[in-house]
Write a protein that binds this DNA or RNA. Sequence first.
DNA 1: TCCATCTGAGAAAACCTTTTCCCAAACCGC
DNA 2: GCGGTTTGGGAAAAGGTTTTCTCAGATGGA
Lengths: 351, 351
Amino acid sequence: MASDASPVSAKTPVTLREVAALAGVSVATASKALNGQGRMTAETRERIRETAQRLGFRPNSLAQSLLRRRSFTVGLLTNDTYGRFSLPVMSGISDALVDKGVSVFLCNVEDDQRLGQLHVDAMLDKRVDGIIATGKRIDRHLPVDLSNLGVPVIYAFTQPDPGAVAFVSDDAGGARLAVEHFWRLGRRRIAHVTGPASFAVVHARAQAYRDVLTEKGLPVMEPLLGSWSEAWGHEAVTKLFDGKLSKSGDEKPDAVFCGNDQIARGVIDALRERGLDVPDDVGVIGFDNWQIVAEATRPPLTSVDMNLAALGREAGLTLLSLVGGEPAAPGIRKLPCRLVVRQSCGRPPDG
Amino acid sequence: MASDASPVSAKTPVTLREVAALAGVSVATASKALNGQGRMTAETRERIRETAQRLGFRPNSLAQSLLRRRSFTVGLLTNDTYGRFSLPVMSGISDALVDKGVSVFLCNVEDDQRLGQLHVDAMLDKRVDGIIATGKRIDRHLPVDLSNLGVPVIYAFTQPDPGAVAFVSDDAGGARLAVEHFWRLGRRRIAHVTGPASFAVVHARAQAYRDVLTEKGLPVMEPLLGSWSEAWGHEAVTKLFDGKLSKSGDEKPDAVFCGNDQIARGVIDALRERGLDVPDDVGVIGFDNWQIVAEATRPPLTSVDMNLAALGREAGLTLLSLVGGEPAAPGIRKLPCRLVVRQSCGRPPDG
DNA sequence: TCCATCTGAGAAAACCTTTTCCCAAACCGC
DNA sequence: GCGGTTTGGGAAAAGGTTTTCTCAGATGGA
């Protein structure tokens, strides 16, 4: 039955002309019948529909696009080859667009200007309806100039051109989430171990960390900046527990908020090697919620999730409305993070 | 200068008609001039070229595609959302195609049949020249039927339909590489810790492991099957070093070949906890060469790389030749792995 | 019976490019 | 000066669809 409805072999796609011929009408009428336009008897319309169905007719998108000046296609530019960050973003974009019949050209431009231009030109030639730029860093430009392209551009998780629309994660908010979570759990000596000063997010998160501690009247330890690696997490534990960092004396931290999950992993391993229990002696929170790391950590790591898929979805929908002609206020929109609680922080003291 | 050559604003794309009008020729002549076809005076050709350049003319791909019945577009289907495996494959594909002006639609179908059909239909409507299917497992089908689509299909790192062209990694060969490397280093009691029996690659690698040991006249320990996790690597070390596994007595392994890098990481951590040195006491080799894990391991992990990018490149080129009408023999082609040597195996005894 | 209105459906233009033919003018040799 | 060839370039069809305009016939009212 079902297999009867679809043609056995679709070697050459069926055209509207063939449908029309078989239904004994003109292509104009056939087109209108299938699109619910025009006026004709119900029988005629039904007959055409049925013929189209039987032949497995599907309109040629290329022809439609040419006419409508709208290709139902968007380009996604990234420089994040192995896509820890941009892949969830892509997934969200695709999610938002697939139902509207929009397909996504994925283009990895590495950090190569030539490659970037090549891909952008190819997209433009193929008349994409719009372009989304994403990347591996929120504070770096893609190696391409996307201004004055003649199509709308949205930035997601990458540095936008001035005057453009961009979506990024609210890193400060995410950091607050983590530190306040520690506070609610009764932790009072909270340290922060994070990445290199060259990253904007390092400062945003560190400042939020300081702000929360200040608000709560807790001692502020200067954030420890290093690299994004496990090794640095390891090393930082030595600094934290062997050195004298706290202004308020030599008390050791009972919580460490880490700039990413790999650092957190290094911290947890180092703590264990020192005989300190996580979470009983020291609570640990990571950032990025990189599932495969967070879940492999012992104990599983509580981590801040940047909601990248949601960010992508938002970007996709906004691009679509831009394509549809609705204006969007330029500027950077920050989307909230969320805290994914696992077992590296313990329970509330009264819980 | 350079900015003079390109239009300040490309709001509405320039058409050939406009170029022709401005150059004072017909569109036919303009087309021929720009494509190096037809016959005309050198001056005419140059004048048209120059006009096109000045106007920033770029031919409308949609119109070209419609005419040529070739969209210079391929679809890439995957179910590997967070793309450990499929992303390198994609990268290789894109690499192979971008120079030929071919763009890639990336479609993540999860494991959802409806989503799969949706994406395939969208691709077909957009008249992709071909489709490449990839995934996260070599022995699983995508949730879509790709037979009789009317366009060529290539499978890469996923289970093909019978009679199709497929590229996969040579897992047995990769395993041989690892075990023979141990052998060359003088290791003689080599264990194998790997993933669940439900994976075809587990058996392929285990068999190759047995084969090499047998060829070399070494004792064969039964491979330890578990999960793909660090935790299992940890647990396996207990079994290996506390139980009696070797037929030839109770000697402990001096090398462990692991089914993936996460297991290897668990193994290394567990060995350290036992006071065993890697690589001095025990050598360890992983599989997948997942850089971020392999390099974070202490010591950095020697691992088998499946050359997924090369696999993708091969798939892309083959698809292209299929699109070009050249026939390709159906069947599964296995591409060699390579061993990436880091520091978890030590040096040759005489080195 | 005749005019006006409405109904169902088709012709044709449009989207943009490529390619095949075709034609007029120039040129050549005689 | 004339037939034949080359040269430079244009007209038109093709690709598949949508949309506007048009039109013939039917219907309704007077």
